[in-house]
C-alpha cells in the first residue's frame, strides 16, 4: 500500500528551511466535509465532520478513539478518497520500531555494492552506499517526503511501545526527519494525519496534547440506518430500519461485546442473501452469531428479543 508512489522529491530539494506550509484548505465548510464524505459512502455525524474540518484548518493530527468497528480506519481512507490524496498507512503492532516506521538502509544491497566495487576507497564507497538508492523508505518518511497530497493513517497506535510513540510524536511535531547520512528531510506540505486507537492502553499525555481528539461511538439510529442503506446493496428501507432498530436494542443490553457497525453490516448482508424481507424472532435467533461473538451474549440477546423479561 505504501510504496507505489515514486519518490519524486529528492532529499536535496526537500531540504528547505522552516516549518512546512499548511497548504490551501481542503474543505470549505463543515457541511462540505459531511457531504464530501457522504459522496464516498462514509456517513459522518456532527462530531466527525467538525473535527475533520478543524484538523485541516489547524493542520493538526487527529487521534480517533472508539470501540472496534465503528469506522475509525474507514474515516481516514474516506478522507483520502474525498481529497484525492494518497493514503499512506502505518499499521502499528507491538515491536514496531524505527526501521519499520521511518526508514532503514538496505544492507543487502549495500553489501553487494561493496563487494562489487572492492577496489574503491572507503570515502567514495560510503558516499555511494548511503545515498537515496540504498534507502528503504517506511511510511512516516514516505508521508513526509511525498510531494503529492497525503493522508497519513497511523492505525492502532495504542499497540506501539512507548519509545516508538515518542518517535511518532517527534515526527508529528516537526514534520521533518533527520537522517544522519543524508541530512534533514522536511515535509513539502503538512499531511492530514489520523491516528486510531482502541484505547487498550493510555497514550502519552504529550501525544494527546499534540492531537485533536475525536471519539467515534456507535452511531445513532438514523445514521446507522443510512450506513446500512449505503453499504448493503439491494437492501429494502424497511429491512434496513428493522436491522438498525434491533441492533440498537441489543446494544442497550449489558454485553461483553456490543455489535459493531461492521457486524451490523455483515448481518444485514446475510439477511439480504437469505432473502429475508422482515426479520422474525426465529430468523434473528438463527443469525445472531453474526452480530454477537460470545455465547453468553447470544443467549442474553435471544432471551431479550423473544420477550423474556431480564432479571434486572
Amino acid at each position: 500500500m505504501s510504496s507505489d508512489g515514486s519518490l519524486v522529491g529528492t532529499p536535496a530539494d526537500a531540504i528547505s528551511s522552516g516549518f512546512p506550509e499548511a497548504g490551501p484548505p481542503r474543505f470549505a465548510s463543515i457541511g462540505d466535509v459531511r457531504s464530501g464524505l457522504a459522496g464516498v459512502d462514509y456517513l459522518a455525524d456532527d462530531g466527525i465532520s467538525g473535527v475533520v474540518y478543524l484538523a485541516d484548518r489547524l493542520a493538526k493530527p487527529v487521534l480517533v478513539e472508539g470501540p472496534a468497528g465503528t469506522g475509525k480506519t474507514e474515516l481516514a481512507k474516506s478522507v483520502a478518497r474525498v481529497t484525492g490524496s494518497r493514503l499512506i498507512r502505518l499499521q502499528c503492532y507491538e515491536g514496531l520500531d524505527e526501521s519499520k516506521a521511518l526508514y532503514e538502509w538496505n544492507y543487502k544491497k549495500q553489501l553487494l555494492r561493496i563487494q562489487a566495487d572492492a577496489g574503491r576507497s572507503w570515502e567514495q564507497l560510503e558516499e555511494d552506499i548511503f545515498s537515496e538508492d540504498f534507502l528503504l523508505t517506511r511510511p512516516l518518511l514516505e508521508a513526509i517526503r511525498s510531494t503529492e497530497p497525503v493522508v497519513l493513517l497511523v492505525d492502532e497506535v495504542d499497540r506501539l511501545e512507548l519509545e516508538t510513540e515518542a518517535l511518532l510524536l517527534e515526527v508529528l511535531s516537526e514534520y521533518q526527519v533527520s537522517i544522519p547520512e543524508l541530512g534533514t528531510v522536511r515535509a513539502h506540505q503538512i499531511p492530514l494525519v489520523f491516528l486510531t486507537s482502541n484505547a487498550t492502553r493510555e497514550l502519552s499525555e504529550a501525544l494527546k496534547r499534540r492531537c485533536l481528539y475525536l471519539h467515534i461511538d456507535y452511531p445513532d439510529l438514523e445514521r446507522e440506518r443510512s450506513i446500512i442503506e449505503t453499504r448493503v446493496p439491494g437492501i429494502s428501507q424497511a429491512l434496513a430500519d428493522q436491522v438498525a432498530r434491533i441492533v440498537r436494542s441489543i446494544r442497550t443490553l449489558e454485553l461483553k461485546k456490543a455489535p459493531s457497525v461492521s457486524e451490523t453490516l455483515d448481518w444485514a448482508r446475510t439477511l439480504v442473501v437469505l432473502g429475508i424481507a422482515s426479520v422474525d424472532v426465529d430468523q434473528a435467533r438463527d443469525t445472531l452469531h453474526i452480530l454477537l461473538k460470545y455465547r453468553s451474549d447470544i443467549e442474553r440477546a435471544e432471551k431479550e428479543l423473544a420477550g423474556v423479561e431480564s432479571p434486572d
Binding site: D46, G50, V51, L54, L58, V62, K208, Y213
Partner: peptide, 27 residues
C-alpha cells in the same frame, strides 16, 4: 482559541464538538 476563528459561533453543535476536540482528550 484558534478554533473560534474557524467555526461559526452560531453553530453551537459544531462548536461543541470542535472545541471539545482540543479540550477533552478522554471520552
Amino acid at each position: 482559541a484558534e478554533t473560534l476563528r474557524h467555526v461559526p459561533l452560531e453553530d453551537r453543535e459544531a462548536l461543541k464538538y470542535t472545541l471539545g476536540a482540543s479540550l477533552v482528550k478522554s471520552s
